[in-house]
Amino acid sequence: MKIVSSMILYLVLILGALLFVFPVVLIFITAFKPDGEIVHFYSILPKEWTFENFREIFASPEEIPIFRWFANSLLISTMVTLLILTVHSLAAYGLARLDLPGKKWVFSMIIATLMIPGQIFLVPVYLILNKLGWLDTPLALIIPAGAGAFGVFLLRQFFLGIPRDLEDAANIDGCTRLGTYFHIILPLSKPALATLGIFTFLGSWNDFMGPLVFLDSVDKYTLPVGIALFQTSYYAEYGLTLAACVVCTLPVVIVFLLFQRHIIKGISLTGLKD
């Protein structure tokens, strides 16, 4: 009886897991089909594998600047990640460890913004970026991203859990606050920094609304927005569109396979700590 119910459990879960993964796998398979086979679906695997779709999106950089979009995405995501790791870890260190007057008050104000729905910032941030002259530049997507409170919250939580003894010893040896941050806190926080970094990178890579609203010229686009453009310009050419989707999705899949544990941990932490 126990074996039967356990087998049913595995069967249900395996079936469910396959259904969830299958659509993504389908992108990768279908990108190797000629258009005719995509439109007239008769088998999951292509009858004849073709690289034509990929050759075509890479071959016409004037019409489809996919390398440019890739470079833009990579630049923006990397810069956002570096900005958040630096600025948020400094702030989190101050909030977790330093004896600042009014610290509690500042922290509650920062945390309160976590619950504010993002859509409220859309119009005013657009206008502020317009005033700064940053619209249609990568800066529009990099700098405002550093204002979110999630990283500060996550890192502060982690820093609070680091034993104080090491810092006390460092202080007696004459280490400054900045020295303690660099030589003690940061090296001990690698797991938390990695989690936040991967998380931030993926979020920025996949961001759709930001680039859609803040960017104008096609050669400034990031991959997700560039691909969305396909839908209007190359509407009937599913093969090309799916090949572009593979270019956008492959880095995410690789990062996920490499750092799965960090990503899952980051998600879990958001709901459990108070």
């Binding site: 879960l13 469910g16 897991a17 396959l18 969830f20 993964v21 659509p23 993504v24 389908l26 992108i27 995509i38 439109v39 007239h40 679906f41 993926l202 890579w205 996949n206 759709f208 991959l223 997700p224 927005v225 691909i227 969305a228 396909f230 839908q231 599913y238 569109t241 799916l242 989707c245 956008c248 999705t249 995410v252 899949v253 996920f256 799965q260 990503i263 899952i264 998600i267």
Partner: peptide, 28 residues
């Protein structure tokens, strides 16, 4: 299993949108 069910959340909405638009297409 946790990873498999979580996997779709990592796909950009433009990619997921294009994919499902094709799934849902009435004719093909």
């Amino acid at each position: 299993f946790r990873a498999s069910f979580f996997f779709p959340t990592l796909i950009s909405i433009s990619v997921a949108g294009i994919l499902w638009r094709w799934f849902f297409n009435t004719e093909f």
